[in-house]
């Protein structure tokens, strides 16, 4: 795998990943930030391919670029009225300082220690091996992860749906049956009306 193609790919993709990560920071609008994020995910998936981890790369594209990307877009759509600008708090300066200190330490550690790297051959087929590892040696974490996912899903639904059954929702939309799906809810522009007060 160490042909000149891989090195070229590595430099290109890491530039893409770091560039789009910076893009999130500097994007003017929220939605541009999400698109830069998804580009960063894609860049990272490419880096995984250069490390000949094909299953992980495809899983990354599927879970992150596909699902989490759409999830974040939905979240932005459901909170349309919050300021869409991508403005920062006063913590920009100190934030940068802390972040650069942390990453500086990591870079120092990475470059100084000599990892006992043995030039290992690449693995053409990783899917089969990951599958056997997951179902034999790491069976318990595999089951725990599935329980965690279900808990997260139920939690998310309860959180969002509970917020929707407040009384004023019901008299507002007349007695039609509840929302068909979040897609419709996302279509609505929501305005803050402080004037309602208690009634």
């Amino acid at each position: 795998m160490d042909g000149f193609g891989v090195t070229a790919a590595f430099w290109g993709l890491s530039a893409l990943a770091v560039g789009s990560a910076l893009g999130i920071m500097l994007a003017r609008s929220l939605l541009h930030a999400v698109l830069w994020l998804i580009l960063a995910f894609a860049g990272l998936a490419g880096l995984f391919v250069t490390l000949s981890a094909d299953f992980v790369a495809v899983a990354q594209v599927l879970v992150y670029a596909g699902a989490v990307g759409v999830l974040v877009v939905f979240a932005i759509m459901l909170t349309p009225n919050s300021q869409t600008g991508n403005s920062e708090t006063r913590m920009v300066g100190p934030g940068l300082f802390v972040a650069s200190v942390v990453s500086g330490i990591m870079v120092y550690i990475a470059t100084q220690t000599d990892w006992s790297t043995a030039a290992r051959g690449d693995f053409p087929a990783t899917a089969l091996e990951i599958g056997t590892a997951l179902t034999n040696r790491y069976l318990l974490p595999f089951e725990v992860a599935s329980v965690l996912l279900i808990a997260a899903m139920v939690g998310a639904i309860v959180l969002v749906r509970a917020a929707r059954d407040e009384p004023e929702r019901r008299e507002l939309a007349g007695e039609g049956e509840g929302e068909v799906n979040t897609a419709e809810a996302a279509g609505r522009e929501v305005v803050a009306a402080g004037s309602h007060g208690g009634h």
Partner: peptide, 9 residues
């Protein structure tokens, strides 16, 4: 499937 899941975005 992974590539297809980018389409809605």
């Amino acid at each position: 499937i992974a590539v297809g899941s980018v389409m809605p975005l």
